[in-house]
């Protein structure tokens, strides 16, 4: 059974030129423990779709169901990794990671142990007292990943989580997110504009059309893990994705 269902979702907004349709009739089922990538040309509404799934935006039409329950607002079982990290500058690393637990009213002793464990998991031990401004981009996104992991979330939504990082850091963090995905058995929905990234990480790849965003094709990624980006089958997949995506 699907853990998350996106049902007939359309999204439009008013602009000076009149009504603009950003997403049109999106239907999607996301299974538990799946890594799904949303890919499409710039402005196709993939980040909007992710925010609708998160409960941050109410769709103009349609609905999102999480285990049969309609998602009408943000819920603790869905967390988010942001493109530009979205760390709170007034909190240090520990406090940023502990933020979701604090908001949910978890006991102080449990907050301490859980936060310390996740900080260790993402390799930030020793930086607990540092503030975001004192960290590199890669370290900031590690904090962002840790914050998304720390609570009791079942689904992690990631909006182009590596696009603000240099190529080397992005590669390292991709592998670390995959490790976390495997270890914590979370469902991940990631928006990306890079075909290589989608092919390297996802189990299924949803290709959206240019505005208004519709589902062009859903591709099952059958390449075995760990994936070799030099493999001819990997090239076949990225070629196929590039062909489907209309800029």
């Amino acid at each position: 059974m699907a853990q998350l269902i996106v049902k007939n979702v359309s999204q439009s907004y008013e602009s000076e030129e009149g009504k603009v349709l950003a997403l049109k009739n999106i239907n999607l089922e996301i299974k538990e423990g799946e890594f799904l990538a949303l890919i499409g040309p710039s402005g196709c509404g993939k980040s909007t779709l992710l925010r609708i799934i998160a409960g941050l935006i109410e769709p103009t039409e349609g609905e999102v169901l999480m285990n049969g329950q309609k998602v009408v607002t943000t819920i603790p079982s869905i967390s988010f990794i942001f493109q530009n990290f979205a760390l709170f500058p007034w909190l240090n690393v520990f406090e940023n990671v502990a933020f979701p637990l604090k908001m949910l009213g978890v006991k102080e002793s449990k907050i301490k142990s859980q936060t310390a464990e996740i900080i260790k998991e993402v390799g930030l031990t020793g930086f607990e007292k540092s503030h975001p401004k004192q960290l590199s981009g890669g370290m900031r996104q590690r904090v962002g990943i840790a914050r998304a992991l720390v609570g009791d979330s079942k689904i992690i939504l990631a909006d182009e989580p590596f696009s603000s990082l240099d190529a080397f850091t992005a590669k390292t963090l991709r592998d670390e997110l995959l490790k976390i995905f495997k270890r914590y058995k979370k469902t991940i929905v990631m928006v990306t504009h890079l075909v290589d990234e989608a092919a390297y990480m996802a189990d299924r790849i949803v290709v959206l059309t240019p505005r208004p965003g519709k589902i062009e094709k859903i591709i099952q990624n059958k390449l075995s893990r760990p994936r070799n980006t030099r493999d001819s089958k990997f090239y076949d997949l990225t070629d196929e994705l590039t062909r489907i995506i209309h800029p």
């Binding site: 988010f80 979205a86 709170f88 933020f99």
Partner: peptide
């Protein structure tokens, strides 16, 4: 930044806790 508001909403910042840990520091 809009992303910070979204992060506060995603991670369930509400009521007095939101005021203390998010709104007032952001407005400081």
């Amino acid at each position: 930044r809009e992303e910070l508001n979204e992060a506060a909403a995603i991670f369930q910042a509400k009521g007095v806790k939101k005021l203390i840990y998010f709104t007032l520091p952001a407005l400081f």
